[in-house]
Amino acid sequence: MNISLLSVVGYLVAIAALVGLNAVILVWLERKVAGHMQFRLGPMEVGPHGILQTLADGIKLVSKQLVIPDEADKPLFLLAPIVSLVPIFAAMVPLPFSETVQAWELNIGLLLIIALGLLNTLGILLAGWGSNNKYALLGGARAVAQILAYKIPLLICVMTIIMMTGSFSLRDIAIAQKDTWNVLYQPILFIVYIITVTLETNRSPFDFSEAESELVAGFHTEYSGMGFSLFFLAEYSYMFIAAGLATVLFLGGWHGPWLPGVAWTLIKIYSIIFLMMWFRWTFPRVRIDQMLSFGWKILLPLSLINFIITAGVLAL
């Protein structure tokens, strides 16, 4: 494959624009969804229906002073938001938006995204450790404990799909679903996947590392201004990637009637993100030990049984 420097820069700019725009839209959408689910309207002042509110907030956050606590581990403290954010640029690369719109077709794209998803936790752990704050530390420790619950069911989910398609390439997986989406074959797996990515992206009801009523703000207790907004950006970008992966794995990628492929992909991605927001504004938080037992006692058996049945059906 022939990659020129120009195209790499082009992809980077495009992905950066996508990450930024996505966060602006998602923060606004989240506040709107929250508002309407709580008999409110959400932001209404900046721009029509408050669409520019995130931009205004972003400018405010960026212009704020960077506060570093005296006792904090300064390099780690500054590194943490970056560690959280940077992998996104790589994880966006193999994500196909349509048959032609894709940064780079990798034959192990799926593996790359799953692996890079783990780096988010590293960012959280660094933030928790570097802040030198007990609440932040508890948040960081919880984030690590959380991996135990979701990573294995998530991988088994992904393995099942790989087994069905016979390829690690996201593009191949999407193409294989031209006629029937995987969600029709694997509805339970889809539910398991949605739950595990909700866990992976630290979203309520599994927002243990943030846990407002318990840990004040969890791992980002000490962050303000730019650091805080980077974490925010990372959170929403991970949501986008998780939803994009769900789209490709289960909802047939860009396939759909009438509309162009990119539009279908975006519609599917944002529908799944809406679903995750819907969870957040409905459920109370699960307790951390309950989450672990939920992961091991329900998610893992479910996905394993599914895996075995699928293998059996495929072998026949």
Binding site: Q38, S213, P284, R285
Partner: peptide
Amino acid sequence: FLLDLGGFTPFLQALT
């Protein structure tokens, strides 16, 4: 109480 348990919507539903 639900806010303590991490659910935000109940709070505003009750407030309404």
